[in-house]
Design a protein around this nucleic acid. Structure first.
Lengths: 215, 215
DNA sequence: AGCTTTCGCTACGAGACGTAGCGTAATGCC
DNA sequence: GGCATTACGCTACGTCTCGTAGCGAAAGCT
């Protein structure tokens, strides 16, 4: 949502139902029309609100779709399956399942593309999509460390570095496989990828290989 | 380019200079305006051709931008640096350098987004961008195998599986780091990522076929 | 020459954009 | 209850881009 003025205590309040209807209509339109052919007028009609109402709440198509898509990724959960491998595999498959939905893939990449020229939009994406899901990496990592599957803290000076790296690798690989290569992210692929990732994480921290292994 | 009718041997030939001018103008417009505000009329003006000429050669904005962006990625080369780690690191940095250019990041993600609803467009992207660069993985892998850094053939039944996996991981991670996380792909990051990837590749192949690491 | 295809130019209807203006509806405050 | 304030629905508008059609001229081939 946009910054609802906090001092706004008087006057008619904004309809929360309208917000939900608009976001749902946006996702519906993404399925039917895709990003490029999606028009705000059409979304307004689907939601049963006036076009002007839409413009009063969102600055434009970009912001609207970010909010509509962001809700999809809140479904993600870290399944406590007892092992790091199973945890990662589970998240990868969940993530892929969301990306398989047309409203997600059609909208997400488009706003990411737009965000390359719009700093505010990119911040919005990071806040409402990316950083929210980074918790999965942090939590899965903590669990693995508690189980002894990963060493406690490989680099105390930059604890966030490793998390960011892992996140970019997981999210990047799944997105690339699903949307660019356009091949299925099935159990077979998820297992291969998970094996690769875990071996990379453990080996890099256990045995000191050729020279300095950056972390 | 589009399918130039092969039986077209008579009549005035198409100007090759116009093709180059149009593609250059497209990249220029991507820098100045970005994907969403780029119009074909503007590109035509910049290229010094009529708008109708543009429509005679490309079906629309999507196809035009794919061709304009594809040329950028042909610069990629595999630096024979003597070690697998250095090879990967070099390619990652080259790839990141291209992605840092506004005409690349603004255009590439947009056409990928569009390709989620356009099968023909996705095929075009794969042909002219993705699959062309997959050679880097194949070649780097062969070199590493010749050096003994990687075992000969981990999975003879599906030789392309591993290459595809590696490619998705590399390309996906770099793109995600550069465009979504929007943090620099510098030497530090490239080195961390390379270490993670190599350890994952070597370990994954060793304990699947009980050989020892060539080290 | 004659034939064929491309090119530049102009013009056009269609559709989406984003905004303005108006009257009405829903709340909080006195 | 009445009043101020804000949100809402609706209509209408100028502006822009789209993609195409039609024309005459240019540039190649045989």
């Amino acid at each position: 949502m946009q910054s609802r003025s906090p001092a706004s205590r008087t006057g008619r309040p904004r309809s929360a139902a309208a917000d939900a209807a608009i976001l749902a209509a946006t996702r519906e339109a993404l399925v039917d029309l895709g990003w490029s052919k999606l028009t705000l007028g059409d979304v307004a009609t689907r939601a049963g609100v006036a076009k002007t109402t839409l413009y009063r709440r969102w600055a434009g198509k970009n912001e609207l779709v970010v909010d509509a898509v962001a809700e999809l990724f809140d479904e993600l959960e870290l399944p406590d399956s007892g092992s790091l491998a199973a945890d990662i595999e589970g998240v990868v498959l969940q993530f892929a399942a969301i990306l398989a939905r047309p409203e997600a893939k059609s909208g997400l990449m488009a706003v990411v593309a737009e965000s390359t020229r719009d700093e505010a939009l990119r911040a919005r994406i990071r806040e409402s999509v990316v950083d929210r899901q980074k918790r999965l990496v942090v939590e899965g990592r903590a669990r693995a460390q508690a189980r002894g599957e990963l060493p406690p803290e490989p680099d105390p000076s930059h604890p966030a570095r490793t998390v960011d790296l892992i996140f970019d690798v997981i999210a990047g690989a799944v997105v690339h496989r699903a949307l660019v290569s356009a091949e299925p992210v099935d159990t077979t692929w998820a297992r291969s990828f998970t094996a690769l990732l875990i071996d990379g994480m453990t080996a890099a921290t256990t045995h000191s290989r050729s020279g300095q292994v950056a972390q």
